[in-house]
Amino acid sequence: MATQDPFLSVRHFVAVAQSGSFTTAALALGLTGSALSKSIVRLEARLGVKLLHRTTRRVSLTLEGEAYLASCLQATRVLEEAESSFSSGQRNPSGRVRIDLPAAFGRRHVLPLLLDLASRHPQLDLSVTFNERKVDLIQANIDLVVRIGALEDQADLVARRLGEQKLVICGAPSYLALRGVPLTPDELSRHDCIIDWRSGYRHRWLLNNGAGQTEAYDIQVRHEMGDGEAVRAAALAGLGLVQVPTWLVSEQLASGALIPVLIDQSGGEMPINVIWARSQHMQLKLRVVVDALLLAAQESGSGFRADGK
């Protein structure tokens, strides 16, 4: 007597979940509706959870069903990638890579690398989004993220450092003429400051304390913007001071449209990392992207260096 495939009911569940219909899934699988229904019931009994809501008109996923479907699809992608890598001699990456980047930095310094990579690997598909906030990679179905700033220690994530960016505090001449130039870090608490969403709930800026160490100083937040380019625009409009990477405002500093302040104390640095979920098998398509970012970050003019070049 042949042993039944333990994952047969899993494939049945995925077919029903994706089609939203027992009838449609049964036809696609070559099963009767009764046999398919019994297979799903056995799977639910084995897992000890209810995966589907069934009515006479429609089928929908429970919360547990949504989580299980996401896990099933992720496992399927891993298997497909493994088979593809073996069949192609493990040289040709294929499949879709979902990447989330910080908006301004990502568009300027990372996206060109990804587009070049895609042009060199015709079977590599990209889904690129831009976001300044923390992302749950598994929940959001994201393969890789690039983030700027200190990282939390999370055992289920892997991070590789790409570089760092140097920060400068600056404001428009119109703002400085109205509110004055801060001469000490403590005076920042009396100025209107503009931040991006990545700053979170702790409204502080990083400055050198003169002893070779970086300290965080409290600031008075006036405006919050969605990304670095919006922060720069607000500063140019004379709405307050900003602390931004030098690469973002190099042209404005050179032209005098923005004036640096606290020059001796400014110059804090923030790390840039590429992050992905830890697993025993790193898919070839992810490895190719990570390796390309690490290689590019070592090159002069890559944008991953603290000098902003």
Results as ranks from 00 to 15, higher is better:
2 A>F: 14
3 T>F: 11
5 D>M: 07
8 L>Y: 13
13 F>V: 02
19 S>P: 00
21 S>M: 09
22 F>I: 02
25 A>G: 07
36 L>Y: 06
37 S>P: 05
41 V>Q: 14
45 A>P: 02
47 L>K: 01
47 L>P: 11
48 G>T: 04
48 G>E: 04
49 V>A: 12
49 V>S: 03
50 K>E: 12
51 L>M: 08
54 R>S: 07
54 R>A: 05
63 L>P: 03
66 E>Y: 10
67 A>M: 09
70 A>Q: 08
71 S>K: 13
71 S>C: 15
71 S>G: 03
73 L>Y: 08
77 R>Q: 11
80 E>A: 10
83 E>Y: 15
86 F>H: 14
86 F>P: 00
91 R>T: 07
91 R>L: 14
91 R>S: 14
99 I>V: 12
101 L>I: 07
104 A>L: 09
105 F>M: 04
105 F>S: 00
107 R>C: 09
109 H>N: 10
111 L>T: 10
114 L>M: 12
119 S>Y: 15
121 H>W: 11
123 Q>D: 15
132 E>R: 03
133 R>Y: 09
133 R>N: 14
139 Q>C: 12
140 A>E: 13
142 I>S: 01
142 I>V: 11
153 D>E: 14
157 L>C: 04
158 V>T: 07
164 E>V: 05
164 E>M: 08
168 V>E: 01
171 G>N: 02
172 A>Y: 01
183 L>I: 08
183 L>P: 00
184 T>K: 10
186 D>T: 14
191 H>L: 09
192 D>P: 00
195 I>Q: 01
197 W>N: 07
203 H>T: 10
209 N>S: 12
210 G>T: 06
211 A>N: 13
215 E>I: 07
217 Y>N: 04
225 M>Y: 10
228 G>D: 02
228 G>V: 03
232 R>S: 02
237 A>C: 15
237 A>V: 12
240 G>T: 03
243 Q>F: 03
245 P>D: 04
245 P>T: 04
248 L>V: 04
248 L>Q: 01
253 L>T: 03
265 Q>N: 14
267 G>L: 02
271 P>S: 13
272 I>C: 01
279 S>E: 12
287 R>W: 06
287 R>D: 08
291 D>P: 00
300 S>H: 13
308 G>N: 04
309 K>T: 10
